[in-house]
Simulated scan of single mutants.
Amino acid sequence: MKKYKWVIILANLIILLVYFNYSVSKKEEILQDGKLVLLQLAPVDPRSLMQGDYMTLRYSISQNISSNHLPKRGYCVVRLDSRGVAEKVRFQQEAAPLNKDEYLIKYTSPNEWNINIGAESFFFQEGQAEKYSRAKYGGVKIDKNGNSLLTGLYDERLKNIK
């Protein structure tokens, strides 16, 4: 039995490392080839806006919805305006149908009041809160399957805040 214990531990470690590397490579692929979409930030209670070294984000596309009528998981279909800012078109459970010039962003609905697109926090270096407090847009790279990755925050002139 001792001999098999180490084999099982080693096999689990290899599976974990393969999965981790696969996950990282998929995120790198989104960063490299994904479409940049700017999501307008919605107001957040100022008392919880800055907590240590991260900012809680909420997006205007997830406001004024009744998520109790939405499936727990699905897609937010958006259309981009001429500046690259996303405008919500509809929510749907499946990836299809998708019209011309529409893009998918996967969402989850943890409760009946919110939907999450997977980028609800932005982490930054301590002492940089003032710089990021003027953010108006979240820059998200999306792939054709609706996977998203937050790449940065943008000001009202659509400039990346660095």
Rank of each mutant, 00 (worst) to 15 (best):
K72M: 11
T108Y: 04
G34W: 03
K72T: 11
S109N: 15
T56I: 13
R79W: 01
S109A: 15
K141S: 07
S48Y: 14
S25I: 07
S62H: 07
V78F: 07
K5Q: 15
R79A: 03
L41R: 01
N116V: 06
A96G: 12
I65P: 08
S82T: 12
G52Q: 02
P97H: 07
S133C: 07
L39F: 12
L158N: 10
A135M: 06
S148N: 13
A119G: 13
A96K: 14
Y19G: 13
Y4R: 09
I65Y: 10
T151V: 12
V77S: 02
K159S: 11
N114C: 02
D101G: 09
N111P: 01
K5T: 15
G118F: 08
L149V: 12
P46C: 00
I105V: 12
L98A: 01
W6N: 15
D155S: 02
M1D: 14
V24C: 01
A42N: 08
L36Y: 01
K3V: 10
N160Y: 11
V78H: 06
K27G: 00
N147H: 10
Y154F: 14
L49P: 01
M1T: 13
G34Q: 03
V77Q: 03
G52D: 05
N145I: 01
L98M: 06
P43L: 03
V77N: 02
W113G: 12
G127D: 05
I115A: 06
S23A: 11
Y137C: 02
Q93Y: 09
I9M: 09
W6H: 15
A95D: 10
Q93K: 14
N160K: 14
Q51W: 05
K136N: 05
L57Y: 06
L158I: 09
L38I: 03
S121N: 13
P71Y: 00
D143M: 04
W113I: 13
N99I: 11
Q63L: 12
P97Q: 04
I14F: 10
G74Y: 00
Q40Y: 00
Q32T: 11
A95P: 11
A11E: 07
M1G: 15
N147G: 03
L16P: 10
N116Y: 14
I161M: 04
K141Y: 09
K144Q: 09
L158F: 11
I161C: 02
V24H: 04
G127M: 06
T151K: 09
G74M: 01
L70H: 15
F123L: 05
S148V: 02
L49C: 00
N160H: 13
Y54D: 03
L150W: 07
E87K: 05
N145H: 09
S62Q: 10
A42S: 12
D101R: 12
F124P: 02
N147W: 03
T108L: 05
E120A: 02
K141I: 04
L158D: 09
R90N: 05
V24R: 13
V44K: 03
S82N: 14
V37N: 05
L38T: 04
